[in-house]
């Protein structure tokens, strides 16, 4: 019973090391920050840090919902389209029902679409990849039906001033991201729903045998994911003052990359918001840093692709030694 002694003997130092082994993305983040700090004098400035956090927050908010769904062992490809619809509704409806009711409808559209995604996945038994791939295309179509081919413009530009609240370098958007991330980390670690999320993703048979309502559980997480996509869409509409029908295109991919980069497992059962925050920030730092260095766009993509693969190889080496599953 060597395990017992190992675990009981763990000192605080050991805990830090084992935390870093599981959340090695933070080491990776520190490395990338160090490299870009040396490479560009503009990188490590308060202004730029604020930029990174705000830019990262959009993908970040999507990534929170995606993390919940992915720990469940599912995926949601429709977040980019849901975001576009929420942002179009939030702006397009302002003339008719006023600013805050429009924002509310936008939020509800996300919650509703997430609920539909979850219900289809849970009740049909189809894989969420297929269901939400349909959502990705169908919802984007809906956005074009609603807004036509043109960007919707906000009627009153005071709308764009709403997120202009800062706490040092931290914009309101970034604060919302960190607030939501911390809240959902708490949900994961301290609530019944959080335990269910890990149990369902880890061993769905065991979860079912233990009497967990797996279907209802998955619907809730897809609804959370859809709602957060709408939150992201509304914040984006406030930042831009417009709602483009193509907003958020392929953001679902960046979101998945951020979550996977953090270390959350695609197969489910393993992950945390700490990892996702790390993944989101790493992704944001990479994009920002490469732009500061005037890297051409296609090189940027190549680097990002390579980094993603590298991070996953690293994850495999660090965490799955002798793991045959």
């Amino acid at each position: 019973m060597s395990h017992t002694t190992d675990i009981r003997a763990s000192s605080p130092k050991m805990t830090v090391v084992s935390w870093l082994l599981r959340n090695h993305i933070w080491v990776f983040l520190a490395l990338t920050v160090a490299i870009f700090s040396l490479a560009s004098p503009y990188f490590l400035t308060i202004n730029n840090i604020g930029n990174i956090l705000t830019q990262g927050a959009f993908i970040g908010i999507l990534a929170i919902g995606m993390t919940m769904v992915m720990i469940d062992g599912e995926i949601d490809l429709s977040v980019g389209a849901v975001l576009a619809l929420a942002s179009a509704l939030a702006i397009g409806l302002q003339d008719h029902i006023g600013v805050w009711p429009a924002v509310f409808i936008g939020l509800m559209s996300g919650a509703f679409l997430g609920f539909v995604n979850g219900t289809l996945v849970a009740l049909s038994g189809m894989h969420s990849f297929i269901v939400t791939l349909g959502g990705l295309i169908g919802i984007r179509g809906l956005v074009f039906v609603y807004s036509g081919e043109n960007a919707l413009m906000v009627p009153d530009f005071s709308y764009t001033e709403i997120p202009e609240i800062y706490l040092g370098p931290l914009s309101l958007t970034a604060m919302i991201f960190f607030g939501l991330a911390l809240f959902f980390q708490w949900v994961l670690s301290s609530t019944r729903h959080g335990r269910e999320t890990y149990a369902v993703g880890d061993n769905i048979e065991a979860a079912h045998d233990a009497g967990i309502n797996v279907k209802r559980h998955k619907i809730i997480n897809f609804t959370i994911c859809g709602t957060l996509a709408a939150v992201c869409g509304i914040l984006l509409s406030m930042r831009l003052g417009t709602a483009e029908p193509n907003a958020g295109k392929i953001w679902e991919l960046w979101t998945i990359i951020a979550v996977v980069l953090g270390g959350t497992r695609l197969q489910g059962g393993f992950g945390s918001m700490w990892m996702t925050i790390g993944g989101v920030l790493t992704l944001a730092v990479l994009r920002n840093g490469l732009r500061l260095l005037n890297t051409p766009n296609y090189v940027e993509l190549m680097v990002m692709g390579a980094v993603l693969i590298l991070a996953l190889v690293l994850d495999k080496l660090l965490n799955h030694k002798g793991d045959t599953r």
Binding site: S190, R192, G194, D202, N203, A210, G211, G269
Partner: peptide, 23 residues
């Protein structure tokens, strides 16, 4: 569930919570 702790597995699906679902 291999990723959950021993305690969480013993009470799998029947975790003691308050009425808001907080463990």
């Amino acid at each position: 569930s291999p990723e959950l702790s021993v305690a969480e597995n013993i009470y799998l699906g029947a975790w003691p919570t308050n009425r808001f679902g907080v463990l």
